[in-house]
Computed example of a mutant assay.
Amino acid sequence: MKQIAGILLIIMSVLISAQEKKYSDQELKQKLDSIKAEGNLLFSHENASWHSGDLISQNKSVAGSVGTYLTYKVHDTIKTVFLNREQSLVLAEYSFKNNGTKPVKENFRQRKLNNTESGINKVRNTIIPQLSDPKYEVGVPEGYNLNIIILPLNEKYKVYLIPGTSQNGIIPFGNDYLFITDGEGKILSNQRFHSRLIPAITQMENGTTSVKTTHSHLKTNPFISATDICTFKLYAPLTKMEEFSVYSPALGTYMTYNYKKDSLEKTKKP
């Protein structure tokens, strides 16, 4: 028993030490720059998905035949393609640059999926059934949905799940996940960034509006997340908010992101 207790104490000490790691200003800046870059990448994908989804719904000749969609990056272009119900053909393709709200190119010529699209589609179809496993604790509160973003990672894939909502005056932070899969879509590891959904209310019942919002992270997740940045960039333009902050108890500091400046900095107060 003493040996077991000793081992447990060692494990706990390692965990506490990892959570309380100190970062130099340069290390912290590098970490935040990396998170911001990932958040912008996620946003570029969701931005294309959002706007192409609106466009395809208005195209009566195609919308009724669509089964699913895929969004991916090719050089400086983000493409969203819509597949038929059998997922054997691309029915429509929209190309976006510089996070534009209008595509720089549209193509409605039916074609077979290319290698990139086939790979992403295979991962999507393989991972979705796995998400019902209770060990991953993937859930969707009423009034919200989960959007999937699939990014190639060498021979593997990163699969993000981020929340979405059609409710006005809400920025849906939290309830976000990251899965690393093999090339076929089998889950190798998983991470949950927040313990729950954290809806930021931007419009109060008395008519007042919020211009800033802050939430805290657990010590096990000390940094602002790329999903936080993506979600804020999607919804903030629909509000009067320009920035949000995350407080890190593990680091004892705030991290503030401003979407108009695309700046992410360590701050003493939000």
Rank of each mutant, 00 (worst) to 15 (best):
A5C: 06
G6F: 05
G6I: 02
G6Y: 03
I7N: 07
L9I: 11
L9Y: 07
I11M: 10
L15G: 10
A18R: 12
Q19K: 08
K21I: 14
K22H: 13
Y23H: 13
S24G: 12
D25Q: 11
E27S: 12
L28S: 09
L32M: 03
D33W: 07
S34V: 06
S34L: 10
I35T: 06
A37H: 05
E38M: 11
G39P: 07
N40D: 08
N40E: 07
L41K: 12
L42Q: 01
F43H: 02
S44H: 03
S44N: 10
H45M: 13
E46W: 06
A48M: 08
S49Y: 14
S49V: 13
W50K: 15
W50F: 15
G53Y: 14
G53L: 14
D54F: 15
L55K: 14
I56H: 04
I56N: 04
I56E: 04
T68N: 08
Y69A: 11
Y72G: 03
Y72R: 03
H75D: 13
H75W: 04
H75L: 09
D76V: 02
I78R: 05
Q87K: 02
S88P: 07
L91I: 09
L91W: 01
L91E: 01
A92P: 00
A92N: 03
F96N: 01
N99Q: 07
T101M: 09
P103Q: 06
P103H: 09
P103T: 06
P103G: 03
K105V: 02
K105H: 09
N107V: 07
F108S: 11
F108P: 13
Q110I: 10
K112E: 08
K112P: 01
N115Y: 08
T116N: 07
N121L: 08
K122A: 12
R124N: 01
N125W: 00
I128A: 05
Q130W: 04
Q130F: 05
K135V: 09
K135G: 03
Y136Q: 05
G139K: 13
P141F: 06
N147D: 09
I149A: 01
